[in-house]
Design a protein around this nucleic acid. Structure first.
Length: 865
RNA sequence: GCGAAAGUGGCGGAACUGGCAGACGCGCUGGACUUAGGAUCCAGUAGGUUCACUCCUAUAGGGGUUCAAGUCCCCUCUUUCGCACCA
């Protein structure tokens, strides 16, 4: 009678594999449903976060299968990247070897979890058959003008000879060797994601995304409307364009602020090697940690450049300052400073004694320069601004911009906070950028027929201090495909986010050898109907993937505008209030849990703990609760198997007498509750035997249908698996409450069997192994994914009596058990006769009585004088 | 600092359009049972009050709307997350 989970889970995993039930059919007649969980980095072990993510995906998958969809749930590995390279270095091995070993281990653990995954579509981004097409996409983007090279300042470690990401800089020093990190101007490859900024702000084509993620992306893209206005360098024709969102304050400009990286400043630095103040300030600022420098707390500093700019609107001559608070890569990299109406400019002007000019007055015109303690940033009335005086400042923005445009000094423009995506990495373990540097022809793409550019194996990882690819002459040195002369390959590899921004499309056609994927197959499968992953990717992976999808759409490879129709951001599993991590030593190994209690227990625990998008605190004892629930289920059905089988037999016989429900070919809809395994026919209910039903059995029948109703609502529509499971638990409690099945008549047996037999179906999405086992035990020849969704019938939900709550002035004073069709007037009368109600009304005068049908009688009364 | 979300028993969480607050599970208390098992079964479990019936107080705190508020509105506090000189 023991719940032998290990045996059961192995058995069903074997059967599922042998029958290849998870293989998704391209172009099936059935409607498709594509469920995708973010693929893992192959660390070698599944962690609890994976288990939780994939438990959700698997629940959705199995629900959709029961509903009659052709479901695709694929899996793969995000296997390029620094963690793999670093792992290989520390283990004195090669990332290709360690990665493939890890994949073997992970696959074993995936199999042990029993997920419904179409492994025939597996992808691994570090394999040539995948990264080939990443290179192809790169080239197509290059041809479309979406890829370019740009010099920009990067964190650079002189010892390691590599660019470091911001996270790899600790206290201005290299995380690996500890030497000082400097800002170095370097050529980098960029994707022109900003071309799509406007479109990426538009979420009208997704079906259901969390508001939070959309807000985060919108903020990240940071659209601001304003104007570009060209100031000029004094005694020169050199223009200095600035970007401002406040053209209404332009008459208040008293200085101009430039960052050291500004091209003009760079020129001046070159011209004045002896200007110690200028040289040392610029050097200091440029070598400052990027994060530190851009933090709002750091003090504003600057030096006067000795030069002046001319404000085109009033011809005013203003000082040009070189400062640490202006960013080169936003807007035009130059700021018109209006200290009176911008707090940053105000702070700076006060510190360096720069004049301040008020050009916007508050409504009572009480702003005085001498009394100003902070910038006045609100709208108001224009002053000191020539012919714009006395206008409303907000209205003046448009007026001034129009005037600037007419005069040819600038134009209305839009700027985004979003930067182009720098994809160059000076790392070995990534997708090689398929470009060749030819001394004669410049930068030349590798011809399509030479793709993929294979990542050489012979690299001695960790042996060199620079990009390992530079040290492989056989790979590095090539002939230029255009002129045939000696040339060199690009040694940068791509950011791994490039690999993951199109993998969902590769799953549609994972083995295509001629294209990234067949557009027809992509059209069938895409978009992903339900995507599941962590919120940490809100502004990275999810934004990049949307961008690349739009590019692929423009190429005609995919249809529609968005890759992910619905997004679910699952919460983290915490322990001791913190994210699990090896360094904190607070991890829980899912494999250990599976070995001890089974995959079904782990899944039920994770899904039952909270709604999927919330974080959960790991709790060993609650895990036992899940285990006990499954054990109880197993005992109930195994212990009452004879009665259940007899009851199911009665049902079959009665169905033969009555018209069968119309066979359903995959009617996937949240609307119609229809399925193949229908509830017993009507005549059972209306027969004479039904009249003899004990209240106990009537309640059990109610529980059966009520449970199905709740389960469907919670799991299919609301995706609240915790309450769906709670509904099953409650129903199980009702089933076990019936102590003996010995005296049941055939009709009652049928009801009992029905009550028990829905349990495996309802459990299937959350605990599929035990569900299949119990289903088979009852004698069903099919597997559960073919069993259809359980259905409920309204007529069994009708109760003989309803309970009305009686409130007096909002407080409960009694209850009434009445027939459901009792008239409101009768209810009022009955309510007023309840003893408690009479007592509560003593000394009160009736005001009115409200009857809420099926729910309550609410009496409003006021004290008698 | 700006923005967003959230605050419900000892704990995880229910309560969908305002209509019996605390479903379900964990834990705890008492009991039964014994194949002594990460058992199982039964009863109880927001706080206070009462022998009991009853009653009172409770959804971060304070106001408000309503016959009726965890749910709607206003203010305050706390927590979490995101952004953080974006001109």
């Amino acid at each position: 009678m023991d719940y032998t989970f290990t045996e059961i889970e192995r058995k069903w995993q074997k059967i599922w594999q042998e029958r290849r039930i998870a293989k998704a059919q391209d172009f099936s007649e059935k409607p498709k449903y594509y469920v995708l969980s973010m693929f893992p980095y192959p660390s070698g072990v599944l962690h609890i976060g994976h288990a939780s993510n994939y438990a959700i995906g698997d629940a959705i998958t199995r629900l959709k299968l029961m509903e009659g969809y052709n479901v695709l749930q694929p899996m793969g590995y995000d296997s390029f990247g620094m963690p793999a390279e670093n792992y290989a270095i520390t283990h004195n091995s090669h990332p290709r070897i360690t990665t493939e070993e890890h994949i073997v281990n992970m696959r074993q653990q995936f199999d042990g979890m029993g997920f419904f995954l179409d492994w025939e579509r597996e992808v691994s981004t570090c394999r040539p058959d995948y990264y080939h097409w990443g290179q192809y996409i790169f080239k197509k983007m290059y041809e479309q003008g979406l890829v370019y090279r740009k010099k920009s300042f990067q964190n650079w470690c002189e010892t390691c000879k590599t660019v470091l990401a911001n996270e790899q800089v600790e206290d201005d020093c290299c995380w690996r060797c500890g030497s000082e990190v400097i800002q170095k101007e370097m050529d980098q490859w960029y994707f022109r994601i900003t071309d799509y900024a406007e479109e990426l702000l538009d979420f009208s084509h997704v079906i259901e995304w969390p508001e939070r993620v959309m807000t985060m992306q919108k903020y990240w893209i940071g659209k601001s409307e304003g104007a570009r206005i060209d100031f000029t360098l004094e005694n020169s024709s050199q223009k200095i364009p600035i970007f401002t969102t406040r053209p209404d304050t332009i008459f208040g400009v008293t200085f101009m602020a430039l960052p050291p990286e500004h091209p003009l400043v760079q020129t001046w630095l070159a011209q004045e090697p002896d200007n110690a103040e200028l040289q040392s300030f610029c050097k200091k600022v440029m070598n400052e940690d990027k994060l530190l420098r851009s933090s709002a707390e750091s003090l504003k500093e600057g030096v006067f450049s000795g030069r002046y700019a001319i404000n085109p609107l009033n011809g005013a001559k203003v000082q040009i300052w070189i400062t640490n608070y202006v960013l080169m890569d936003y807007g035009t990299g130059a700021v018109m400073a209006v200290p009176a109406h911008d707090q940053r400019d105000f702070d700076f002007a006060r510190k360096y004694d720069i004049p301040i000019q008020i050009v916007i007055q508050n409504l009572d015109k009480s702003l005085k320069l001498e009394e100003l303690t902070e910038a006045y940033i609100e709208p108001g009335i224009i002053c000191n601004s020539a012919h714009f005086d006395d206008q409303d400042s907000e209205a003046a923005q448009g007026e001034i911009t129009r005037w600037v445009q007419e005069k040819g000094w600038g134009e209305a423009t839009i700027t985004y906070r979003l930067r182009d995506w720098g994809i160059s990495r000076q790392r070995y373990w990534g997708n090689p950028i398929p470009m060749i540097h030819c001394p004669k022809c410049g930068i030349v793409p590798v011809p399509d027929e030479d793709l993929p550019v294979l990542l050489p194996d012979e690299v001695q990882v960790g042996q060199t201090t620079s990009n390992p690819l530079l040290s492989v002459p056989d790979w590095l040195n090539v002939k230029c495909p255009v002129c045939g002369e000696d040339a060199q390959r690009e040694t940068d590899t791509m950011d791994t986010f490039v690999d993951s921004s199109w993998y969902y499309a590769r799953y549609a056609d994972a083995h295509n050898q001629d294209l990234p994927f067949d557009p027809a197959k992509a059209e069938y499968w895409l978009p992903v109907d339900q995507y599941i992953g962590g919120i940490e990717h809100a502004c990275m992976h999810l934004l990049y993937a949307r961008f690349i999808y739009k590019f692929m759409r423009d190429m005609g490879w995919v249809k529609g505008n968005e890759p992910f129709a619905r997004l679910l951001t699952q919460g983290m599993v915490l322990k001791d209030g913190a994210k699990m991590s090896k360094s904190k030593g607070n991890t829980v190994d899912p494999q250990y849990i599976v070995d001890r209690f089974g995959s079904d227990t782990l899944r039920v625990y994770l899904l039952f703990a909270s709604p999927p998008e919330k974080d959960v605190e790991w709790n060993d004892e609650a895990l036992m609760g899940a285990f006990r629930f499954l054990s109880r289920t197993y005992r109930l059905i195994k212990g009452n198997l004879t009665a259940i089988q007899q009851g199911l037999q009665v049902r079959e016989e009665s169905e033969e007498l009555s018209p069968k429900p119309v066979a359903q070919d995959a009617v996937p809809a949240e609307s119609a509750p229809v399925a193949q395994d229908a509830v017993p026919a009507e005549d059972l209910h209306s027969s004479k035997e039904s009249a003899k039903l004990s209240p106990e059995l009537k309640n059990l029948r109610f529980s059966t249908h009520h449970c199905i109703q709740r389960w469907r609502e919670d799991s299919l529509i609301r995706m609240q698996y915790n309450t769906a499971i709670a509904a099953v638990m409650e129903h199980l409690n009702h089933c076990t409450a019936l102590k003996s099945t010995e005296d049941l008549n055939p009709a009652e047996l049928s009801i009992y069997a029905q009550a028990c037999s829905i349990i495996p179906q309802l459990l299937y999405p959350f605990a599929p192994h035990i569900a299949e086992e119990l289903w088979q035990m009852m004698g069903h020849p099919n597997l559960l994914h073919e069993s259809g969704l359980p259905i409920y019938e309204e007529k069994y939900l009708a109760q003989d009596t309803v309970t009305y709550v009686i409130q007096v002035n909002g407080k409960i004073r009694g209850k009434l058990e009445v027939a459901p069709d009792t008239a409101a007037g009768v209810l009022q009368e009955l309510a007023l006769k309840v003893e408690n109600v009479i007592r509560a009304l003593e000394g009160f005068e009736l005001k009115k009585i409200i009857v809420i049908p099926g729910k309550m009688v609410s009496i409003a009364a006021k004290p008698q004088n």
